[in-house]
C-alpha cells in the first residue's frame, strides 16, 4: 500500500498490550499529525511506556498502528523503526561501551550513502554542538544529560517521521532537563512530530498541542494543555 501524504504520520487505534497475562494497555487511540507534539501524562504504571513500546512492537500487542495510512506490523520493531517511528526508550538505550561517533552512525544504520550520513550528522551537531566535540568519547562515560543528547541525536540520525521519547528528563538535573526540552521545542518548531511521555507534567504541558491522560492502562482524557492547568483536580494531581 502506498503512503497517503494526507493521512496522519502516526495513527493508533485500539492498541491493547499485555505482559504475560497482565493487561498493561487497554484499547488506546492516539493520533499525531505533521508537526504536532503530543504529551502522554499519567501516574506510574498508567501504561505510558507500554503505549510507546507497543507502538514499536516491543511488547505483545493487538490493535492497529498506521503511518501515513500504511499499516505497520505489530511484532516487528525493525519494520516500525524503518518506517520512521523512532523511539528513545526510557533509560536512553545508548550503546555505552561504544563511542559517540559509533552510536550516532548506528542511528542511521539503514543509510549507506556517506554524504547523506554526513548531512544528518551536521544537522545533529547543530542541535547538540557538544556532541561534535566528543565524538571519540565512550558514550557510557558521559554525564546523564550528554547521554540523553547521544540518545536523541542517534534517533535523529534515522531522520524520523515521528520521534517518541520516554521520559527524557528522568534522572537529570533541572537545568539539563530544561536544555533537553528546549531542544525538543526547537525540533518540534522545525516541523518534527513528537510524542513525549513525561512525569514532570509542567514541562510537557508547555510544549504540547494535546495531552493524553492515561490511568491504569486506559485513556481517561484527551485535552488541551490549558484544560489540564484549569482543571483543579488534575492540576493538584500533576503539580503537587
Amino acid at each position: 500500500m502506498a503512503p497517503d501524504p494526507h493521512a496522519p504520520l502516526l495513527q493508533v487505534r485500539g492498541l491493547t498490550a499485555r505482559y504475560g497475562h497482565v493487561r498493561a494497555l487497554e484499547a488506546t487511540d492516539l493520533t499525531v499529525d505533521r508537526g504536532e507534539l503530543v504529551a502522554i501524562l499519567g501516574p506510574n504504571g498508567a501504561g505510558k511506556s507500554t503505549l510507546l513500546r507497543a507502538i514499536l512492537g516491543l511488547v505483545a500487542n493487538t490493535g492497529e498502528v498506521r503511518s501515513e495510512g500504511v499499516v505497520l506490523p505489530r511484532a516487528d520493531p525493525v519494520a516500525v523503526a524503518s518506517a520512521g517511528i523512532v523511539l528513545v526508550p526510557e533509560g536512553r538505550g545508548i550503546f555505552g561501551p561504544m563511542t559517540v561517533a559509533e552510536n550516532l552512525r548506528l542511528g542511521a544504520y539503514r543509510v549507506r550513502d556517506r554524504r547523506e550520513v554526513e548531512r544528518r550528522l551536521a544537522r545533529t551537531f547543530e542541535l547538540f554542538p557538544r556532541l561534535s566535540e566528543r565524538l571519540g568519547q565512550t558514550a557510557g562515560s558521559m554525564s546523564g544529560g550528554e547521554q540523553q543528547m547521544v540518545a536523541i541525536g542517534r534517533a535523529l540520525m534515522a531522520d524520523p517521521k515521528v520521534l517518541l521519547l520516554d521520559e527524557p528528563s528522568l534522572g537529570l538535573a533541572p537545568r539539563v532537563t530544561a536544555e533537553i526540552l528546549e531542544t525538543l521545542r526547537r525540533l518540534n518548531q522545525s516541523g518534527l512530530s513528537v510524542v513525549l511521555v513525561e512525569q514532570k507534567a509542567p514541562l510537557a504541558l508547555e510544549l504540547a498541542v494535546r495531552v493524553h491522560l492515561l490511568s491504569l492502562g486506559r485513556t481517561v482524557a484527551v485535552i488541551s494543555p490549558d484544560q489540564v492547568k484549569s482543571h483543579d483536580e488534575l492540576a493538584r494531581y500533576y503539580f503537587a
Partner: peptide
C-alpha cells in the same frame, strides 16, 4: 559495529532498525 551493538543492548539495536 551493528553486531557489537546487538551484543550490548539487543532492544536498543532493534530500535535503530538493525
Amino acid at each position: 559495529k551493528a553486531m557489537r551493538a546487538c551484543a550490548i543492548d539487543r532492544e536498543a539495536a532493534l530500535l535503530q532498525a538493525i
